[in-house]
Simulated assay, not measured.
Amino acid sequence: MRGAVGFEETRRARGRRGGGRSAGLQEPSLYTIKAVFILDNDGHRLLAKYYDDTFPSMKEQMTFEKNVFNKTSRTDSEIAFFGGMTIVYKSSIDLFLYVVGSSYENELMLMSVLTCLFESLNHVLRKNVEKRWLLENMDGAFLVLDEIVDGG
């Protein structure tokens, strides 16, 4: 009898750990954000924070941001898939706000982070979410970003 109970517990534990899952699926994680960045109308970085080593060097980050800006600056949608990543974005006057997640990430989760970022900046910048006010209040913008995304 004891052997049967041990077998059943082992089988249930494997099911919880994902033992029966295919190799292509990833385990769920709280770390959903790969990067958050804000660019101006010309695609130049104003604020950026990367949370993993997908783009380890500054040069790779800048190239990625420029490519994303070129793909998204002339469209009216709010989501893009680029380089195996899901990107949600929003424009406001002369700023473009981007939140980047992996290709399997839930777009609604990324969009809620973007909405929270925009609304928080809107509050901190007193409803003036534009380049000049962002540059004058950069410390507040980084504080907002650090409070929204805790290590990714």
Rank of each mutant, 00 (worst) to 15 (best):
Asp139Leu: 02
Phe82Glu: 13
Leu134Met: 10
Thr32Leu: 15
Tyr51Asp: 12
Asp146Asn: 14
Leu47Lys: 01
Ser92Cys: 07
Leu39Ala: 13
Ser92Ile: 01
Lys127Pro: 00
Leu108Ala: 12
Asp42Gly: 07
Asn106Gln: 15
Leu117Gln: 01
Gly83Val: 00
Glu107His: 09
Leu39Met: 07
Arg45Asn: 12
Val100Ile: 15
Trp133Phe: 06
Tyr98Gly: 10
Val100Ser: 11
Leu97Met: 12
Phe82Asn: 09
Ala35Arg: 01
Leu135Met: 07
Glu105Val: 14
Gly43Ile: 01
Asp139Asn: 06
Val124Asn: 03
Asp40Gln: 06
Arg74Ser: 08
Val88Trp: 08
Ser102Tyr: 13
Glu136Met: 08
Met85Gln: 14
Pro28Trp: 09
Ser29Val: 12
Tyr98Lys: 03
Met58Ala: 07
Asn67Trp: 05
Leu135Gln: 06
Arg74Ile: 06
Val124Leu: 06
Asp42Ser: 11
Tyr51Ser: 12
Gly43Leu: 02
Leu145Cys: 03
Glu130Arg: 05
Phe64Ala: 15
Phe118His: 09
Ala80Asp: 15
Asp40Lys: 08
Tyr31Gln: 15
Ile79Pro: 05
Leu117Asn: 02
Asn67Gly: 05
Val88Met: 11
Phe37Ala: 08
Tyr98Asp: 10
Leu114Asn: 07
Asn137Gly: 03
Asp94Gln: 08
Gly83Arg: 03
Leu39Gly: 08
